[in-house]
Design a protein around this nucleic acid. Structure first.
Length: 954
DNA sequence: AACTGTGGCTTACACT
DNA sequence: AGTGTAAGCCACAGTT
């Protein structure tokens, strides 16, 4: 084993690659050769500090065979390892001769063990419950617990004898006749249990079929005529049946998990009882119980973000993780402790030029001439961290590393993760794939206000962190050494920072979502909002002894929709959108019903069991306007209760705490996250009832919500008319009022409060609004010059960049308007700008990227059978050129002359561009804007064309 | 037979 | 989740 330590990796390697270092960078004297760096290196992955290039300490691992020899698995490594084709040049030899064959002692990056398993949690262990699972080896339920005092992950194996089961209505004696069931080798025994049937509002006895292993449930549930609760995962059942709250602190005592800090103090309880005083006792009880979920500080485990780069000989083709045919050329890791490391595979011939941009602080670079050693050292770190963060690690980085490791002969027991059916989990800690988490629609919309539109690391990081990936011109495989390092480490850094920014906002959000939904860490970060709501509902049903109804039952007893959707193919009618005028209107006040749909659910007691009930005590029923569904008001609806509770918690407590300046910053940040988590949940509560995938799918509930919404806004509209308020526009829950009288506004708000129990808030005040005359399409300008653009074509992703840029510049001009008179000047400026762009386009002054139209493939290319949209045409051309194209990919294409009409940017040349088509899109983009400010395209460009015609002739 | 206009339909994207 | 806009494909009818 030879290991080199040098003060300047760049200096050393640039000599090897015979490209002389330029500039004046020199190693610091005290760090010159001979200085003992090894001491610090042995113990910790806290590697050498680095300031620019000159003092960078690098580790060059030149002989992995010797290294491997000293490890238990040396037999797995051939004596003379054959590097992958194309990587055969012997860097070790070159380094060796350069250094006169000096041999150093074996050094490892860190003293951490190569593999690690969680310790078994004995009585007395305390920590945060982060994951439950089924342990196949022992055949028991298990829970992973993170002890934040010493940073260790424990595993608790169930000692209560908990077993998998499902329910049926066949009495036990009848069940004995079903031989397929009772003689199945996985069958264990039956019990009779009593449950409350919420749908029919009565107690009933059901038969519990207990089986030996979770997979048997899937077999036997089809052998009985009716089965209940047979689709719930075993490791979720464990949580629901014991009332566990993932994300909260527990102690193992007497072989059981005991919640810590779950009790509210006397003062807190009084406070909560006061705030929820108008509610029924079961709601208040829930409110008291929930307090600790939002108050207990979250655990802060160490986190490691990992990103890999793989060699590929084909430009633009993503290497296939299932075959893992090409070498892993670089692995970057970034930890929340502040250090970063990049392990790079030696590839002679790769240029060693200085990097084109700065490298981050605390960066350690290590070069390996053996891919196996590289991967193993990466595994060593992954094995030892409680939390691993990746961006698309479920589908790329981890499967690739796994398959590559197997291919290279690394024994499976050295691989620190295991593939589950659709994700990858860690042997020791927990794996979070941030791509999956940020792709969750509810997270995108409600937690981050649609700040990012695409689910790429670059798009999300630039929206949330204001930082981009390193831009590269060629493929990763062709990058010079330091560019690869810079690129790779940036990706790992961004991935890490997506969870650490704003006082660990995302990490805290995940913990809170776990506590509300009752889903384990690796589940909550990978599922959609309907699964979160589903889980909370299941948990709550179990807590109260309710039978969880089957999907078919709900549909059968509740009926279907009574309204026709306006749009073909939709199931029921939705929101009301008023017809807007066109033109400019000064002084517009926008009123907004505060969380309209959740408030309706709460106020109208909507839930799957209260709408069209089988039985309603005292027949206290109300009718939903328009659709005629009946709602039972004498029993508290479960959905209404939960949604109302979260809404009140958010509005009455946590929105206030989040703004309370007397609290320290980090506490305030936590409370802000609490209210954001609640917002995600509250806003999702309506939509799930209209989603067929939701197990409590109940179209009459969803339809009632929208019908009451339409009714409310119509009534308010009428009242506004009576008060002499001029309503110009409204969409779902908003009203745009022109130049209102303040007293009348207040009167309208009082009317809404009194008649509907809803808050009608002043959402925003616009200095002026320009309406195009189309629905969901306007520009609103605030007093300070800032601007809201809604629905305009120019805002859409599939509008070419040059048009977006021009549009936003014109918006700035419009934002500067102070009075109606200013519009005369604005019109002149806009006329001139438009003409300039028009002529620029005619003369092809734009490049292909500016002209590109970007459109997403929503399904595989083969699935477009009805017709062939333009982006699919372009995608097919890419496939013919050997580029892999997958669903979700955004295709960039330009419109060109010729039969096909389009070409992907990668294959197109500027002269081919069809200018007429672009003039047409330019017209479409700006006409909406021009319409709003009483101008027309023809007036501007028509005369411009004449001028041009004459000037060319002249 | 080739072209043009129309309208239904598919698709993507944004708004609430 | 439904509602709304826009663009483009494609079959069809009618015209040249």
């Amino acid at each position: 084993m030879e290991r080199l330590y040098d003060n300047s990796l760049y200096e050393l390697l640039s000599e090897i690659s015979s490209s002389r270092r330029r500039g004046s960078s020199h190693p610091r004297d005290d760090d010159r050769e001979g200085a003992d760096l090894t001491g610090g290196m042995k113990a910790q992955p806290q590697l050498a500090t680095h300031q620019g290039l000159t003092t960078e300490k690098a580790v060059v691992n030149v002989d992995a065979e010797t290294w491997a020899e000293q490890h238990a698995w040396s037999t797995m490594v051939p004596q003379s390892s054959t590097p992958p084709a194309g990587y055969g040049d012997d860097l070790a030899g070159k380094l060796g001769s350069l250094l006169g064959g000096s041999r150093g002692a074996l050094e490892r990056l860190s003293a951490l063990p190569l593999t690690r398993k969680p310790l078994e949690a004995r009585d007395g262990v305390e920590g945060f419950l982060l994951q439950t699972m089924y342990d196949g080896e022992r055949g028991v339920a298990a829970a992973k617990i993170y002890d934040d005092r010493n940073g260790i992950v424990y595993v608790y194996f169930d000692r209560t004898g908990y077993m998998p089961y499902f329910l049926t209505d066949i009495p036990p004696d009848k069940l004995q006749e079903l031989h397929e069931v009772v003689r199945h080798k996985g069958f264990d025994h039956v019990e009779v249990v009593e449950k409350f049937d919420l749908l029919r509002w009565q107690r009933r006895k059901v038969t519990k079929i207990v089986v030996k292993t979770p997979d048997v449930v899937r077999v036997l549930r089809d052998k009985v005529p009716r089965a209940w609760e047979a689709n719930i995962k075993f490791h979720h059942n464990y949580i629901y049946d014991y009332g566990l709250v993932p994300g909260m602190k527990y102690r193992v005592g007497k072989g059981r998990l005991i919640l810590l800090g779950g009790e509210a103090s006397g003062d807190d309880e009084r406070h909560i009882r006061e705030i929820f005083s108008g509610e029924d006792e079961s709601t208040i009880e829930m409110a008291v119980k929930w307090l600790s979920l939002f108050e207990q500080p979250p655990p802060k485990p160490r986190r490691l973000a990992v990103d890999i780069e793989v060699f590929t000989p084909f430009k633009g083709r993503i290497p296939d993780p299932s075959t893992a045919s090409y070498p892993v050329i670089s692995v970057a890791m970034s930890s929340d402790e502040g250090w970063r490391a990049v392990y790079v595979l030696a590839r002679p011939g790769v240029p060693m030029n200085p990097p084109r941009g700065p490298l981050p602080e605390n960066l350690h670079v290590e070069i390996f001439d053996d891919e196996r050693a590289l991967i193993l050292e990466a595994f060593r770190l992954i094995s030892n961290y409680p939390v691993l963060l990746t961006f698309n690690g479920d589908n790329f980085d981890l499967p690739y590393l796994y398959n590559r490791a197997v291919k290279l002969g690394i024994p499976r027991e050295y691989i620190p993760f295991r593939a589950r059916s659709d994700y990858v989990t860690l042997e020791y800690g927990f794996h979070i794939d941030l791509y999956k988490f940020f792709s969750t629609k509810a997270v995108q919309a409600y937690a981050f206000g649609n700040a990012y539109q695409e689910f790429t690391l670059d798009a999300i990081a630039s929206a949330l962190l204001g930082e981009h990936k390193v831009e590269v011109e060629s493929t990763v495989s062709d990058l010079p050494f330091f560019e690869l390092v810079r690129y790779n480490v940036r990706d790992a850094d961004l991935t890490l920072r997506l969870t650490t920014f704003n006082n660990d906002l995302v990490w805290s959000l995940i913990i809170l979502l776990m506590r509300i939904s009752k889903l384990p860490l690796e589940d909550v970060t990978r599922s959609q909002v309907s699964a979160w709501v589903k889980s909370l509902f299941y948990w709550e049903h179990r807590r109260r002894g309710y039978l969880i109804p089957s999907r078919e039952e709900i549909i059968r007893l509740k009926g279907t929709t009574r309204s026709e959707a306006l749009i073909k193919g939709k199931k029921y009618q939705g929101a009301l959108v008023l017809d807007p005028p066109s033109g400019i209107y000064f002084n517009i006040v926008v009123l907004d019903f505060a969380s309209l749909y959740p408030s309706i659910i709460k106020r109208w007691n909507l839930s799957y069991e209260t709408v069209n009930p089988v039985y309603c005590p005292e027949s206290k029923l109300v009718e939903v306007p328009d659709v005629g569904h009946k709602v039972c008001m004498s029993i508290p609806g479960l959905t209404s209760q939960i949604v109302g509770l979260l809404r009140d918690y958010r509005v009455k407590i946590y929105k206030k705490k989040a703004k309370d300046k007397s609290l320290p910053d980090d506490v305030r940040a936590w409370y802000n996250t609490v209210q954001a988590a609640m917002k995600v949940y509250i806003n999702a509560s309506y939509g799930v009832f209209g989603a067929e995938s939701f197990p409590f799918y109940a179209p009459p509930v969803a339809e009632s919500v929208t019908a009451i919404g339409r009714y409310t806004i119509k009534q308010t509209l009428q009242k506004a008319g009576e008060l002499g308020l001029r309503v110009l526009y409204g969409d779902t829950d908003s009203l745009f009022i022109w130049n209102p009288d303040e007293d009348k506004l207040r009167e309208l708000q009082e009317y809404v409060e009194k008649n509907f129990g809803l808050d009608l808030e002043v959402d925003k005040v616009y200095k002026f609004v320009t309406f195009s005359g189309l629905k969901k399409n306007y520009i609103g300008a605030y007093e300070d010059g800032s601007i809201d653009v809604k629905g305009m074509v120019a805002k859409k992703r599939n509008t070419p960049e040059f048009l977006k840029k021009e549009f936003s510049e014109m918006l700035a001009v419009i934002g500067s308007v102070k009075s109606p008179e200013d519009f005369i000047k604005v019109r002149r400026v806009i006329r001139e700008r438009l003409r300039k762009v028009y002529h620029g386009l005619r003369d092809l002054e734009f490049n292909l990227d500016e002209l590109a139209i970007r459109m997403a493939l929503n399904k595989p290319v083969e699935a477009y059978t009805k017709n062939t949209p333009q982006h699919v045409k372009a995608a097919r051309q890419l496939i013919r050129a050997g580029v892999q194209v997958l669903p979700g990919d955004v295709i960039s294409f330009v419109k060109v002359k010729g039969k096909e009409g389009v070409k992907p940017v990668q294959l197109a040349r500027l002269p081919e561009v069809d200018v007429e088509k672009y003039v047409e899109s330019m017209r479409n983009v700006f006409e909406q804007l021009l319409l709003a400010i009483s101008m027309s395209w023809d007036e501007i460009i028509g005369s411009s064309r004449l001028e041009a015609f004459f000037s060319r002739r002249g």
